[in-house]
Amino acid sequence: MPYYNAADMRARARDSWHSEWISKNGLKERFWTDKAISEFLGQPQQAGPILAWRRKDVQKIENTPEFQKWLAKRREWLAAHGKLPGEQKPGV
Rank of each mutant, 00 (worst) to 15 (best):
M1L: 11
M1Q: 14
P2N: 07
Y3P: 07
Y4R: 10
Y4A: 14
Y4H: 12
Y4T: 10
N5E: 07
A6H: 14
A6P: 14
A6N: 13
A7H: 11
D8L: 15
D8H: 10
D8K: 10
M9D: 15
R10F: 10
A11D: 15
A11N: 12
R12S: 11
A13K: 08
A13P: 05
D15Y: 05
D15H: 14
S16Y: 14
S16L: 12
W17M: 07
H18I: 08
I22Q: 00
I22V: 11
I22N: 01
S23H: 06
S23A: 07
K24M: 05
N25D: 11
G26A: 05
G26R: 03
L27F: 02
L27H: 00
L27C: 02
L27G: 00
K28S: 13
E29M: 09
E29C: 13
R30P: 03
R30W: 08
R30V: 01
F31H: 08
F31C: 04
W32K: 02
T33D: 05
T33H: 12
T33N: 11
D34P: 11
K35F: 08
K35N: 15
A36I: 03
A36D: 01
S38I: 09
E39R: 07
E39I: 04
F40T: 04
F40I: 01
L41G: 01
G42E: 06
G42K: 07
Q45Y: 15
Q45L: 14
A47Y: 07
A47N: 05
A47M: 08
I50W: 14
I50Y: 10
I50T: 15
L51E: 13
L51H: 14
L51F: 12
K56C: 08
K56I: 07
D57N: 04
V58K: 03
V58I: 08
V58A: 01
I61H: 01
I61Y: 00
I61N: 00
N63R: 02
N63D: 03
T64R: 03
T64P: 00
P65D: 06
F67T: 03
F67N: 02
Q68T: 06
Q68L: 11
K69C: 02
K69D: 07
K69E: 09
W70C: 04
W70D: 01
A72T: 08
K73G: 10
R74C: 03
R74H: 04
E76C: 12
E76Q: 13
W77V: 09
W77Q: 12
A79K: 08
A80V: 09
H81R: 08
H81P: 08
G82S: 13
K83H: 11
K83D: 06
K83C: 12
L84W: 03
P85D: 12
G86I: 07
G86W: 07
E87P: 06
Q88T: 13
K89P: 06
P90A: 09
P90W: 07
V92H: 13
